[in-house]
Design a protein around this nucleic acid. Sequence first.
DNA 1: TTTAATTCCTATTAATTTAGTAGGAATTAT
DNA 2: ATAATTCCTACTAAATTAATAGGAATTAAA
Lengths: 147, 147
Amino acid sequence: MLSRKAKYAINALVFLARENKKREPIQISKISESENIPRKFLEAILLDLRNAGILQSRKGKFGGYYLQKDPKEINMATVMRLFDGPIALLPCVASNNYEQCEECTDEATCGIRDVFSEVRIETLRILNNATLADIVKRSKSLAKKIK
Amino acid sequence: MLSRKAKYAINALVFLARENKKREPIQISKISESENIPRKFLEAILLDLRNAGILQSRKGKFGGYYLQKDPKEINMATVMRLFDGPIALLPCVASNNYEQCEECTDEATCGIRDVFSEVRIETLRILNNATLADIVKRSKSLAKKIK
DNA sequence: TTTAATTCCTATTAATTTAGTAGGAATTAT
DNA sequence: ATAATTCCTACTAAATTAATAGGAATTAAA
């Protein structure tokens, strides 16, 4: 399961992609109220997103946060890694944060690794393509279907 | 990432599927040594697997654990759920352990949910098919390729 | 029928991670 | 100057993880 931090981050980002196309500074408290995220907690999350180069900020009065890049350039894999660590379910199949499994005698012939490598590849295929732009588009498309 | 508990469980099960085709009781200490799992911790894990109907046990002298079902009938999704909870990354896309996301105004048109639903479907497709028999087969097939 | 070897079961614990909160410094627009 | 904001460090409470401890119950065999 995603941590609350990751979920809050995704919700905040989708909010900005949808409601702030002009990319002007939006205050923390505005986002916090709109998306029902504890104010101070969100503050820390947005700071992390900014330090990761995903958001930009302006300080002082009328300051706030806005997307640094185009919503097409921000995907779920990046956001999830930032808050919850590797996407892979085993350290030995991660490519960003690879670590050998303790006591694994032969990685090359490990059937368990083979399975979880497949899971990672498929998961990443979806999450890399799931950009903020894509998510906003999906919402609209789902809304049309229902109508 | 999988918890240690889940990893230990998978290792123990694959060991039994590979090394104990006759399905006779194998002692905890044997498995613990072969797979480098802390003895007492493994004890609790095997008990859980037994209570879940995956292993059988015999008590007393020469007692131990063995697979209750055919290795074809035991898959990774079942084992992971037992120790780490739902496979889904969001409660609102789980079907076994469904829970509404707090403050989600409209699940039917949620683009985030749409993405994570896709992830769950693909992950489950792989994990449901990843049986103990499959994993043992994969190992052998990988070993052949290398040779 | 005693003994040795084992699983079964409950309770406890230490370390880590998660989900926040507190308080004030620094910055900026007016 | 002042008001409104982000920035930054430190702290905390609760939950989860990764075990360990100790003994009861069971079983095979001498």
